[in-house]
Simulated scan of single mutants.
Amino acid sequence: MNSNDLKAVVARFNREVIQDGNRESFEDLMAPDFVNWSAPSETLRSAETMWKTFACVLRPAIAGMQVHIHEQLCEGDKVTTRKTISGKHVGMLAGVEATGKDISIDVIDIVRIRDGRYFEHWGVNTLAAVVAQLRQA
């Protein structure tokens, strides 16, 4: 796959999985031996745990979720993406009841692609800062 193909895989994941919540696309795009190196412990590094983060944590808490990709860089089999996940805070998020406020979570992640599927992931985001702001509201 060339760099444009690799970037397209990541863009598809962001649009279909994170933004739209499409489980079938998630299954199509995840390698069976996927590892999320950003997870806080080894037991949470699986693809299923990543799905639950989107489906059970973010999607119920953020209505009208949109993913805006600002920039993608590709080197070898890795795609780095700078993006913003945004929407309205309508449900429990990290212990904070719905505020009705618009929120934006900035994310930078690196995804290693193998055979057109997510194989490894590393990332940082501003979720903790967003939650801290919501607690002050």
Rank of each mutant, 00 (worst) to 15 (best):
residue 90 V to E: 00
residue 88 K to C: 14
residue 5 D to E: 13
residue 58 L to T: 00
residue 6 L to H: 06
residue 26 F to C: 06
residue 69 I to K: 01
residue 37 W to M: 13
residue 104 S to E: 14
residue 73 L to I: 12
residue 82 R to Y: 14
residue 23 R to I: 09
residue 18 I to D: 01
residue 34 F to T: 00
residue 74 C to A: 15
residue 99 T to W: 01
residue 116 G to Q: 06
residue 67 V to L: 06
residue 10 V to P: 01
residue 45 R to P: 05
residue 17 V to L: 09
residue 58 L to D: 00
residue 124 V to T: 14
residue 42 E to R: 08
residue 70 H to P: 03
residue 56 C to M: 13
residue 123 G to C: 05
residue 14 N to M: 11
residue 84 T to A: 07
residue 124 V to Y: 13
residue 55 A to N: 13
residue 28 D to W: 04
residue 100 G to E: 11
residue 116 G to T: 07
residue 13 F to A: 02
residue 99 T to R: 00
residue 34 F to V: 03
residue 48 E to N: 12
residue 45 R to L: 09
residue 100 G to M: 12
residue 31 A to L: 04
residue 100 G to F: 11
residue 106 D to R: 13
residue 78 K to P: 02
residue 7 K to S: 14
residue 27 E to V: 12
residue 30 M to T: 01
residue 28 D to H: 10
residue 116 G to K: 05
residue 71 E to W: 09
residue 81 T to Y: 08
residue 124 V to G: 14
residue 81 T to S: 12
residue 123 G to T: 03
residue 80 T to S: 12
residue 87 G to F: 06
residue 89 H to G: 04
residue 40 P to C: 09
residue 27 E to L: 13
residue 74 C to Y: 06
residue 47 A to M: 06
residue 88 K to V: 15
residue 125 N to K: 12
residue 2 N to Q: 10
residue 31 A to D: 05
residue 12 R to S: 04
residue 96 V to S: 00
residue 52 K to T: 15
residue 44 L to Q: 12
residue 37 W to K: 13
residue 43 T to E: 07
residue 124 V to K: 12
residue 34 F to R: 00
residue 48 E to R: 10
residue 82 R to V: 14
residue 122 W to S: 00
residue 47 A to C: 11
residue 77 D to N: 14
residue 19 Q to C: 06
residue 53 T to E: 15
